[in-house]
Design a protein around this nucleic acid. Structure first.
Lengths: 211, 211
DNA sequence: ATACTTACCGACCGTTCGGTCAGTTTACGA
DNA sequence: TCGTAAACTGACCGAACGGTCGGTAAGTAT
């Protein structure tokens, strides 16, 4: 008997190895730049065996994307709201999202690549699926914060949400490159970065009259 | 006599057509996913003719990158500081940078791709060259704003600069994808977006005591 | 043992890749 | 008008691409 005679999708060891190899390579180089031979090599198997498990390259890519999207959704669902003021909730959520991103760089890279790729048919759907969820929760928080008079009500909640997502995503994308810019020490400490960004977003950069 | 018997780099019509075709395709799909045949086709010439002007694919790519970086630098140099408070200078600079980006999408896409690509040898250099300049000017503005007591001095200037660059770059990257998310109307109006972002960054999201 | 399924592989297919070669056309100065 | 150099091309190369073929090894139910 198998270890997990779960459902139809039992997903043997070999298949899992192929999926992981493919995820890693697709995330690094993108669809076109990765060959089936390279995936087979990394998965310690043969090219025909990949075609035994997946009907073609695109099917494999779709399977990889699907698991990445599922993981991303699960991560977001598990990210419960910080209690407290809306400032605290927003800050907590943003920090949690950044933490998730950095904890699952391959999935994030993959999804981000697909989302930003333009000429992808399923790009739209993935955008709505993955970004949409994050987006809606942030928009809702800002909106509630406005209704409770904690936040200024002349701010576009979707814009505020977009800025938060932007800073997290671009931090993730740029952190390898920023390693070579000595002034940017914050790049090595995501928690500090997140705190700093949210401090600026919430309190602004301007000197206040009182302390 | 030629039109422009300028320097050594006279750059004939054909060569220019090749460079433009290559820039367009490389920006859209990336190095690996673009074939020399496709470039030749788009440039209305033959593949061997490309090899007459450039010694190989990588050399062509480098030539394309070089012109893109030069254009980007020239654009930045031409972006003079807005006069006024540091808030106004920062806001003006950010809006100008975003305007430049959207006015030269192909170059920006190309440079951004290279900067964020990780396994690129010249990626570091381009990062320092292109991002570094923008970065330094922003950092300097924030720093001066702090010394003149206009900005809070407990903010990391490099972090503030990074946030401004992030929001501009991610806006550029995500705007095609955000087209399909109806709530995000701001995505169609870069000037409004820029104003909104800088308003939040400078003034914060919190409700103030006074008006 | 038999029969069937799943996992797997070496060898190969047609096509396209980056790149080359031999040769033709074009432009221009002498 | 001629010579020469640059601009350009069709035909081709070995290698690598995505994908397929026939077949083997191992487990399992009968």
């Amino acid at each position: 008997m198998k270890n997990q005679p779960d459902k139809k999708t039992t997903q043997s060891d070999g298949e899992q190895a192929i999926l992981e190899a493919a995820e890693s390579l697709f995330a690094q180089k993108g669809f076109d730049a990765v060959s089936m031979s390279a995936i087979a090599r990394l998965a310690n198997t043969s090219k025909p065996n990949i075609y035994h498990h997946f009907k073609n390259k695109n099917d494999l890519y779709l399977a990889v994307m699907k698991t990445a999207v599922q993981r991303s959704s699960a991560l977001l669902d598990a990210l419960e709201d910080t209690p407290g003021t809306f400032e605290q909730r927003l800050t907590g959520f943003s920090a949690g999202q950044l933490h998730n991103i950095l904890d699952h760089k391959r999935s994030t890279q993959l999804i981000l690549r697909e989302t930003l790729s333009e000429d992808s048919p399923q790009g739209q759907e993935i955008t709505r699926l993955v970004m949409g969820e994050v987006f809606n929760r942030l928009v809702e928080m800002v909106h509630q914060g406005q209704q409770s008079k904690e936040f200024r009500d002349d701010i576009d909640p979707t814009l505020a949400a977009f800025v938060i997502v932007s800073t997290n995503m671009f931090f993730f994308q740029a952190s390898p490159a920023m390693q070579h810019i000595p002034e940017a020490e914050f790049i090595d400490d995501a928690a500090t970065y997140s705190r700093g960004v949210m401090d600026v977003l919430v309190n602004g950069m301007l000197q206040r009259g009182d302390s």
